[in-house]
């Protein structure tokens, strides 16, 4: 369930990608493996849904809250602080650091907390990687308000007055090695800042800890992904390698895994009005550096609270 932010890659992002011919170069064409990969890519891309904000279903979410509460409370012992920092109404861009491989326990815990705190009546969307939404068994995510990550979809959600959760680090951050578990790493993706400025909405940083302890993440496998040309076909820059249940050696994490019951703590910080703080024509790099440093400092503080990995 790796989610991703608007990384400023409009040309290959979201449903726009459906018009592209994947894997259409000479190196893979003709070979059996190439044809197989191309077939899978076409299948996956044809499944990417167009963003329809109406697909979010408050009644469906409400009925699933007890299930999420069981998962968040019993398995992850989730703790979400500072939700009062989110403005009570109006559009807001929630920007989170992302952890836990494709199972993303931080999203489960935060989505539950947001929906119970503000009520399912408040429109709340999350941006996710195209592949996540094209998985047949994850179609119900759209009812939770998950839409394919693209600048268009993000703008549409904010224009409707909703709260929008983005993970700028996306698949890159979520598969970082476990020894970098307490590091905020957005890979210099700044599309979300441009979005907040264009829509003139406040940014609320959401910092979480514990997700990267749900398995032993060994490598992003960037070279492997590039070798298999997954970046061109699926917009996947990584082919992660981890030790995770029940597979033991887990390559790709496409089928997910059973996350270890690591304690997830999430801190929601006060809103940042970008123009009020950085002037009428702010510099993207300055905002990026400020925001990531602020989130890193918060993550460091959360890490200091933690006594043991997994246990918390």
């Amino acid at each position: 369930m790796a989610k991703t932010g608007v990384a400023g890659t409009a040309s290959t992002n979201g449903h726009l990608a459906t018009t592209e011919e994947p894997g259409g170069d000479g190196r893979t064409r003709g070979s059996l493996l190439g044809r197989a990969l191309r077939g899978i890519a076409q299948q996956a891309q044809s499944r990417i849904p167009r963003a329809d904000l109406d697909e979010r279903d408050p009644d469906f979410i409400r009925e699933r809250l007890p299930m999420m509460w069981l998962m968040a409370s019993l398995w992850f012992r989730g703790e979400v602080r500072g939700l009062g920092n989110v403005p009570d109404s109006g559009p807001v861009l929630l920007v989170g650091n992302h952890s836990g491989g494709n199972m993303t326990p931080d999203t489960i815990v935060f989505t539950l907390a947001f929906n119970t705190y503000f009520g399912v009546e408040r429109a709340f969307y999350q941006l996710a990687h195209n592949l996540v939404l094209s998985m047949p068994q994850l179609g119900s995510l759209r009812k939770f308000g998950t839409v394919a990550a693209s600048p268009d979809n993000a703008s549409k959600a904010l224009e409707s007055g909703a709260a929008l959760l983005v993970y700028p680090g996306g698949d890159y951050e979520v598969h970082r090695p476990s020894w970098q578990r307490n590091r905020v790493d957005f890979g210099r993706r700044k599309g979300f800042i441009r979005l907040a400025l264009e829509q003139d909405v406040p940014i609320v940083p959401v910092v979480s800890i514990g997700g990267q302890e749900t398995a032993l993440f060994l490598s992003r496998g960037e070279r492997l992904a590039s070798l298999l040309r997954l970046d061109r076909m699926f917009r996947l820059k990584v082919l992660p390698i981890s030790l995770a249940l029940p597979w033991v050696l887990n390559i790709g994490d496409m089928l997910g895994h059973i996350p270890l019951p690591a304690k997830i703590t999430i801190e929601t910080l006060p809103p940042i009005d970008l123009r009020a703080q950085f002037g009428p024509d702010p510099d993207l790099d300055e905002i990026y550096d400020h925001l990531t440093q602020l989130m890193q400092d918060t993550l460091d503080a959360l890490a200091l609270e933690r006594r043991l990995p997994v246990i918390g």
Binding site: L65, W69, A72, S73, L74, F76, R77, G78, E79, V80, L83, V109, L112, A113, T116, Y117, G119
Partner: peptide, 13 residues
């Protein structure tokens, strides 16, 4: 009103 129980603050109007 909100009431903290487990991982969530539940309640509403």
């Amino acid at each position: 009103m909100l009431f903290r129980i487990g991982s969530a603050e539940v309640g509403g109007l």
